[in-house]
Design a protein around this nucleic acid. Sequence first.
DNA 1: GCTATGCTTCGGCGGCGGCCGAAGCATCAT
DNA 2: ATGATGCTTCGGCCGCCGCCGAAGCATAGC
Lengths: 247, 247
Amino acid sequence: MRVSAIASGTMSDPTAPGPLAATAALMADPARARMLAAMMGGEALTAGELARIAGVVPATASGHLSRLVEGGLVAVHAQGRHRYHRLASEEVAAVLETLGGLSARLAPRPWKHGDAAREARLCWNHLAGRLGVALHERLTNGTGWLTPVPGGWTASDEGRTRLAATGVDLDRAMAAPRFACDCMDWSERRAHLAGGLGREIATAWLDRGWLRRLPGDGDRDVLARRRVALTPAGRRGLREGLGLDAA
Amino acid sequence: MRVSAIASGTMSDPTAPGPLAATAALMADPARARMLAAMMGGEALTAGELARIAGVVPATASGHLSRLVEGGLVAVHAQGRHRYHRLASEEVAAVLETLGGLSARLAPRPWKHGDAAREARLCWNHLAGRLGVALHERLTNGTGWLTPVPGGWTASDEGRTRLAATGVDLDRAMAAPRFACDCMDWSERRAHLAGGLGREIATAWLDRGWLRRLPGDGDRDVLARRRVALTPAGRRGLREGLGLDAA
DNA sequence: GCTATGCTTCGGCGGCGGCCGAAGCATCAT
DNA sequence: ATGATGCTTCGGCCGCCGCCGAAGCATAGC
């Protein structure tokens, strides 16, 4: 009978750590969590930078990074005497994003960061902060350029035209596993745009000089590293192309 | 200037644990992870049951559960001299699901569980295992009863009719935050159906006796607790209603 | 009342693991 | 070659936390 088959030796040791716990443990250390959060900016960072971000000496950071690489969360790329680290996959970024969102909502602590990083920043590879929320609002409510589908959003013809005119590569956006979906914003507590479209919007606007990265405070502040600002050209482009008046 | 504002005291302590690490730490302990996995079955479990599942004495389990409740991952409901625990929200379940999926893919270790739990089981609130994968296959490939949209799946008219005929409440399924999306199967390494539709399918088929819960091995085996089996009526219903021949 | 059961709190033990400084390699610069 | 820089490995310290047994409450049943 079936039950005896389960009770027999074929079942896994119930006291085994389990893969979930192992992966969670990698994220559970404050220093490692700061490193991972920093890598959510999308760029590859050197071990030294990550050590400073995490607030530990290089020796400690090296150990942490080894474990993250070993655990498959981080990919490393040696170049000269530097070793560049980045998240291993978009899936890792997605897990960190959802886990971070849940954690932020669970922790009722008021958001301590100053307003600077709330204005506009990159979240993984797409636009977040007040600007990201305003864009989401503009594209979905009222204009109908994005219309809801079960798991996210799809673009109307008018929306495609408008977005393409701002330099966004819609074909590449469609090729992503998800075209457009919501990503909860830690600071605004409202949704902004993620998925392939979010990524293409951010890269396109950075490329054409509508957005520029702002220098952070050294590399201590995780959020500051990802800060971006709308340039005058970008402000004009958003008003004329999307009818979005970024205050 | 902006940078000085960040350098000033308004920024959070960069050495603070951070909510992400704190939440991850709650999932990082093997015993707690087993408890959380057990609660993914959807039912509320008593502290004693969870202690046995986790393989620790009640005293230890009590401590773990306190921390999970304190951390907002688990909700507790006292009734008589029992205390029933369940996951605090669907969002928690979603995070566990994605984190578990990532972990399973990262850990290349072969799946140790016997075949029993692989046949058919409930994953959170929807159908998984071989039956879940077969159903997913049937609904998407060939029939086109589910058609892909950016973030998941939508149902064709034919698909709605077919599913409604099996007792699925499509209105309730549509009301969910996600109608239908993929959930990676730990044992099969292939997608099965999650979202509102997945939930409604499982509840409907359990209600009409097409599926029945199987008794697990006491409550030691997490997967066994969630095992279900197709009844003869269910086998017939699936073949006649959906053209799905569940071997 | 008393006893049994479910659960929690308390105290103490032990180990995992994070931290650092020092030393060892590797790479780049002069 | 010689030194400087980036990074890793090694060794030792220390604290956190998971584990258990025992005792303390609460509820249910007699």
